[in-house]
Design a protein around this nucleic acid. Structure first.
Lengths: 137, 137
DNA sequence: ATTACTGCAAAGCATTTGCAGACTG
DNA sequence: CAGTCTGCAAATGCTTTGCAGTAAT
């Protein structure tokens, strides 16, 4: 007798902060930082401590619920739900808008590395530049 | 009447810490963190303060002498000389060995993005995994 | 002599950790 | 009830900043 169609990860205890973080991630338009998630929770009247959000994100990443999507130039990590499809982003240095890339330039590349005696488990890519709007300034 | 074949960047004041950082970078086998540069300077009897090393690296990056080559998972930035050729690295999660990649998987990719109204100024890529030696463990 | 650079200390951020009380299953 | 999770505070690690004395041109 589950509530709404919630796909809660198997054996995780269902606590308010965890459900909050999950739903914020579900509603997100793009990848979010821990701080953003935290203040979004605040707006929803369900505040959770920042350290708790970090712990939850760590847990979610470990369980494959979420992924660390990118790391901005100021060393801030951005998270999003793991939609089982590998994504990368272009980040505008002007307005910080985040644009998803349509495909991963590494797809053809990784197999070559495997030949060279390196077993690839993951990678991280961010593209920086200016979006159409900011390029004009 | 220059000393040794030193290619000192145009208008930069030649100070001991700067020359030290430059020579450490010149001798480096791979990208180094600020801390590593600092302790390498120490070994050479030319200690410089960590904050100074950061300031010098920032300056070098601004002048195009060096580049921020990668950012490790613990948020530590690695620097190396700007050899005018774009490089990426594969980082072994076991032994932290750093292997340079032979070519950039984004070369063919960037032009496509330019078409989509995004002006690319740079990108950041790290590949994680295990080297041949560590994969066996 | 000027101006820029460095040593040093202290601040800033993002993230992590320790602990006791609160809550889940 | 037992074990896990959270609120909270404090610590950590990388990097930046402020300032006064020092060195380079």
């Amino acid at each position: 007798m589950k509530e709404t169609g919630d796909n809660w990860p198997s054996d995780l205890k269902k606590t308010k902060p965890r459900q909050g973080v999950l739903s914020v991630l579900e509603d997100a338009q793009g990848p979010l930082s821990a701080r953003e998630i935290c203040s979004e929770l605040g707006k929803r009247g369900e505040s959770a401590w920042l350290s708790t959000v970090y712990r939850i994100l760590e847990l979610f990443v470990k369980r494959g619920v979420a992924v660390k999507a990118a790391v901005m130039s100021n060393e801030t990590a951005l998270y999003e739900l793991n939609r089982a499809q590998h994504k990368h982003y272009a980040i505008c240095l002007g307005c910080h808008k985040i644009m998803p890339l349509n495909n991963c330039p590494l797809e053809k590349f990784v197999p070559k590395l495997e030949d060279e005696d390196f077993h690839v488990t993951g990678h991280n890519l961010e593209v920086y530049g200016y979006c159409g709007r900011c390029a004009l300034k």
